[in-house]
């Protein structure tokens, strides 16, 4: 099945207990390519970039079978996020 950006946001919210998620469909609506623009989760605390990316990839393991490209921009801890917004 094809996923919408809302599906992906919902999945990330649930599986990573993300407090803030912004996903964009970069495939023009066919659901094959997404940008994770921003994801805020306490799961990222103390993690290196590779480990953070792995958390996201693993959370979407099932969906990745049909998603062609996933680009991950900003992965922040709640603390990093609030200091950025302050």
């Amino acid at each position: 099945m094809a996923y919408s950006k809302d599906d992906i946001e919902k999945i990330l919210r649930e599986r990573l207990e993300a407090t803030n998620v912004t996903v964009e469909d970069t495939s023009g609506g066919c659901g094959s390519s997404f940008d994770v623009v921003l994801l805020v989760s306490s799961a990222f605390e103390g993690k290196k970039p590779l480990e953070k990316h792995r958390l996201v990839n693993n959370a979407l393991a099932e969906e990745m079978k049909t998603i062609h490209a996933l680009s991950i921009k900003k992965l922040l801890t709640p603390e990093q996020y609030s200091s950025q917004c302050a």
Partner: peptide
């Protein structure tokens, strides 16, 4: 690599990351 997409970068025998990590670092 336990990594679902390409490209995949290896540095000194170890998986370093995909495109986003390359850009970030």
């Amino acid at each position: 690599s336990s990594w679902p997409t390409f490209p995949q970068m290896y540095i000194d025998g170890e998986f370093y990351g995909g495109c986003d990590i390359m850009i970030e670092t």
